[in-house]
Simulated scan of single mutants.
Amino acid sequence: MGLLQPHGRRRGRDGQARLKTVIVANLPQARAALDAARAAGGTAGETIGLAAPPDAAIQYGVLFYVKLSEQLAAEYPELQPVIAVDCGDRADLAHDAMRFGLKSIVFRGDPRTAEKLADIAGTLGVKFRSHPA
């Protein structure tokens, strides 16, 4: 089975394949996932979701994902790739990620802080997911 080939567990009741999320920690991994999405003939948002590993912004820094996103957008413009960047429990990194233009953020910190970040994300058009620690 290929990277993006759907299987029974990934299909809804209507028989349609569902979005597959791939964890990418570097450029070669992201390229492999996007090459597979391109080969499947879909857009990244329809065929595949890209997500950073847990606490990725803490480990690699927000600017790493900004540059990675810019590189992927240049190489795969037709796929319009977006990486969900995991900022762990660091509100400052989640805020920086939004400020630097990243379009999908995962925050796993205080729920009250998450509400405030979600408000900011909403005004910026950023997809924001919160998972309490």
Results as ranks from 00 to 15, higher is better:
M1K: 02
G2S: 13
L3P: 06
L3F: 02
L4F: 05
Q5F: 07
P6H: 12
P6K: 09
G8L: 13
G8V: 11
G12P: 11
Q16T: 13
Q16C: 15
A17V: 05
R18G: 14
K20Q: 15
K20C: 15
T21V: 15
V22T: 14
I23Y: 09
V24M: 06
A25D: 12
A25R: 06
N26H: 05
L27W: 11
P28K: 06
A32Y: 10
L34E: 15
L34K: 10
D35F: 03
A36K: 06
A36R: 01
R38F: 02
A39D: 09
A39F: 03
A39N: 00
A39I: 03
A40S: 10
G42K: 07
I48Y: 01
G49K: 00
A51I: 11
A52N: 08
P53H: 09
P54T: 08
D55S: 12
A56N: 06
K67Y: 09
K67R: 15
L68Y: 04
Q71L: 15
Q71I: 13
Y76D: 00
Y76T: 08
P77L: 03
P77T: 03
L79G: 07
Q80G: 09
Q80P: 07
V82D: 03
I83W: 02
A84G: 11
V85G: 07
D86E: 08
D89T: 01
D89K: 08
D89E: 11
R90W: 06
A91I: 02
A91E: 05
L93P: 01
A94S: 09
D96L: 15
A97D: 05
A97T: 07
R99T: 14
L102K: 04
L102F: 05
K103I: 09
K103M: 08
S104T: 08
G109D: 11
G109A: 11
G109K: 06
D110P: 10
R112P: 05
R112Y: 14
A114L: 10
E115Y: 06
K116Q: 14
K116N: 08
L117T: 06
A118I: 04
D119T: 11
D119M: 08
D119V: 07
A121Q: 00
A121G: 13
G122N: 10
G125C: 02
G125S: 05
F128Q: 02
R129F: 13
S130N: 08
H131C: 11
P132E: 04
P132L: 01
